[in-house]
Design a protein around this nucleic acid. Structure first.
Lengths: 230, 230
DNA sequence: TGCCTTAGGTAGCCATAGCTACCGATTTTT
DNA sequence: AAAAATCGGTAGCTATGGCTACCTAAGGCA
């Protein structure tokens, strides 16, 4: 196996805490397929049969949802070491729920999911770690989605913003901090329009609750902010 | 171990396809704690340290989110054999993200997550199945959440309804079918008000796209419905 | 049988938030 | 350094959808 590939793999969350030696032995068992895709080609197509847990080895790819009318929405952009198709790997579903599109030349490794919990398990030392990694990966994904659902289910703009800012406030433990998202991205995340988001932020500033400039925010009055979160 | 408890456990998704014999051996390894809770008491409190993967053995409990101001939202109601805290079990987070509240006398079994992937693994035959079950459980959960996010991210009422109905249409493969959710539940799921949902359904009926009575729906014009989904 | 609860449809009012348009500031490209 | 693209704030208009209120149909129960 190519040294460069091994380097990417050990840095990937799915092989976290697995040594290069162990990895080598495991790859012998797992017998993964590696394919390369030219720029602007499909790595996986929504609705078609699932081809296995994907690990992007090189290049950049986009996970996209295409509506019936042909409009495309980019869900995420992934880079070397990132996974895709983790959610389907162990579910009863056997078709891609979204498409994966190569935005540059990509090389991709596919792991057959049944191998991960398969017969080889007793001999390879790293397999237990691999399963643990998968469990951590899926748990984290589910938690992230769960939190997103919570944000999206909130009705008012003021509430969404307040809860989001309180969350960030809690994480940073300071009154002044930098948001991890730009306005556009934040609007997407909360599923509101950027202009309406800006407008409400402006109102909150006028009311003296917060101050901000671009992505940096200062919470002037946490109590008022909590009030705004209902 | 109580026969009744064993009966519940083998019917639980986490012990799916594990024989009562195997289960017995595994429980010896897992050393689960079983607690009982009186009606209207907390099984777990949001923000407090995680106490392990919960399996409800008897009674009925509600997963609730309480806002700072004290208002409570019921997320799910669970019954015997159902799990809670699956998402946190293998994640880095170590606190309950929601509260679990006993709505009747409840008896609950807690499994320490580290045991599931722990040292005992090589001797118990059922452990591999247990892990597989956990992976399936988490994948399915993540997929469900993912789909929910997709619905919630949709802006228009018409679009939400159209896409939801098209999904059901695809599942049922017939023009006439029964929705799995009552109006109220559907409104909650899509995070819209029941009245606005009814209003738009009425409009769609007036336009001849659909017919409905309570939870049964007939798609008159799939093409128009697809148009409505944008 | 009659009462009560739940489910669901309809209507009117109006606040919220989406959209378009525009502009200034900042960053990136050439 | 100029040009182009991105980022973000503001304003006005308007459609959408939330809310209250009310009413009818259907199911549950004594």
């Amino acid at each position: 196996m190519d040294d460069n590939v091994v380097k990417i793999l050990v840095s990937s969350p799915i092989f976290r805490d697995i040594s290069p030696n162990q990895l080598d032995i495991m790859l012998d068992c797992l017998k993964p397929k590696i394919n390369t895709y030219s720029k602007n080609s499909y790595i996986a197509v929504e609705g078609e049969p699932y081809t296995g847990l994907g690990i992007l080895l090189s290049g950049e790819a986009a996970i996209i949802k295409e509506s019936a009318s042909g409009s495309r929405v980019i869900m995420t952009v992934i880079g070397p070491g990132d996974l895709f198709g983790e959610m389907i790997a162990f579910s009863p579903r056997k078709h891609w729920p979204a498409s994966v599109f190569a935005q540059s030349i990509c090389s991709v490794m596919f792991l057959p999911p049944e191998k991960i919990i398969g017969e080889c398990t007793h001999v390879c030392g790293g397999y237990q770690q691999l399963i643990k990694n998968m469990l951590v990966l899926l748990s984290t994904k589910a938690l992230m989605l769960n939190q997103r659902v919570e944000y999206l289910a909130i009705k008012g703009m003021r509430e969404k913003i307040s809860i989001y800012l309180l969350e960030q406030y809690k994480i940073n433990q300071k009154n002044t901090f930098v948001l991890p998202l730009k306005r556009n991205e934040l609007a997407d995340y909360l599923s509101v329009s950027r202009t309406a988001l800006s407008r409400e932020l402006g109102r909150m500033r006028d009311e003296g609750i917060i101050e901000f400039y671009r992505t940096s925010v200062k919470i002037n009055n946490p109590a008022l902010l909590k009030r705004g979160a209902e």
